[in-house]
Each structure stands twice: as C-alpha cells, then as structure tokens.
Simulated scan of single mutants.
Amino acid sequence: MMIDPIISTAAALALSVIFASAASHKLRHPGWFRRQVQEYELVPGLTVPLVATALPLAELTIAVGLLWSISRPYAAALAFILIAAYTLAIAINLARGRKDIDCGCSGPAMRQPLQPALFARNLLLVVMALCALLPMLDRSLSLHDSFVMIAAGTVLILLYTATDLWLANRPLLLKMSGEK
C-alpha cells in the first residue's frame, strides 16, 4: 500500500512538532520528568535516571528524523513503537487503579491525570505514525501541494493540542458540570 506524499508529509510534520514539544518540556525540566518516570513504577529504581534521559533524546531524534524522506520510515517506526510503549504504560497503571498520577504528556505546567480517554488521543498519534511510515506514491509536487501539506500538518497539530487540552481539563469540566 502506498500513500499520497501530502498525507505522509503532513503527518510527519505534525508528529515532528509533537515529539519536539514533548522532548522540549522533558529536557527543560529533567527533575520533573525523572519523577514522572518513577511515578509510573515500570522500571527499576536504578534505571529511572537513564530512562528519563533516554526518552526525550529518543523523542528529539524521532522529531528530526521525520523531517527527511530518507529517515522518515525509520523515525515513523520508532514513533509508533514509542507511542505504543507510552500507551502500554498508561494501560498498566490504569489497570493498577492508579488514575491520580500525572501522565506527563503536557509538561509540568499542566497536570493531566491518567484516564482511558488518553487511548483515543494516542490512536490519533498511531494513525499519524502509520501515515508517515507507509511508502509514498512517486509523483511531482506543486507549490499548491506544499501549501496543503503545511496546512494539513498544522490542522493535525491543532487537533492534537485541542484533544490534549480537553483531556487535561476534563476532570475539572466534569466537576463543574456536576457529573463527577
């Protein structure tokens, strides 16, 4: 199966921005992120600093790798694996009944408790990774195509951001509405 270069590039651009942003808040606040890794209770205590250093570096590598067509398939495959690992970590902690820990998705400025709705957000990321991973049709691109790629990538980023903000504020919105 081959995919149109507009779809692949828009997905790769959006994922690149999302992974760069994720890496940025982890690298700017290493102590906070180390606590996040430790809170998940999925890696032995001695390896927490190593994992907390490796994850944002992997995210940054993915973000850069998605920008070039030659490295895009590898970066998209790594993005898919990392998103799956993050989703598994969330699922394990939800199964343990640990809904009160911060997912670490939005940085230290916006606490986001673990919730099943995060799976829907991660599904969007998985679809984007798959779109970036699939081989592209070989066709020439016009200036209009370039505009559409950038616009579509921007829409994907905005959709992800809106979903992330809604998920972060959902507990407060439910509380305010009297539903929870």
Rank of each mutant, 00 (worst) to 15 (best):
L174G: 04
L159N: 04
D102L: 10
A14T: 00
R121K: 14
G65K: 04
P44M: 05
L165D: 03
L124S: 11
T87M: 10
M110W: 12
A117Y: 15
A168I: 11
R72N: 06
A75H: 05
L67G: 15
A168D: 04
A132Q: 08
K180N: 00
A91V: 01
L156M: 11
D4N: 14
R35W: 08
R35K: 03
A77G: 09
Y160H: 06
A10I: 15
V64P: 06
F147Q: 13
V51F: 02
K180R: 02
A22W: 00
S140N: 11
A54Y: 01
A54K: 03
A63V: 03
L13K: 00
H25T: 15
L46E: 05
A77H: 01
L159G: 10
R72E: 09
V43W: 15
Q38T: 03
P108S: 07
M176L: 09
L55M: 13
A109T: 08
N122V: 02
L67R: 12
A14F: 00
R98C: 04
C103I: 15
L66Y: 03
L133H: 05
W166D: 13
L158V: 10
G178P: 01
L130Q: 07
L55E: 14
S177W: 11
A120E: 10
T163W: 07
I3V: 09
M110C: 14
P108D: 13
D164F: 07
A151M: 15
K99Q: 03
K180H: 01
L130G: 12
F19H: 05
M128R: 01
L67N: 01
V17G: 04
L94W: 15
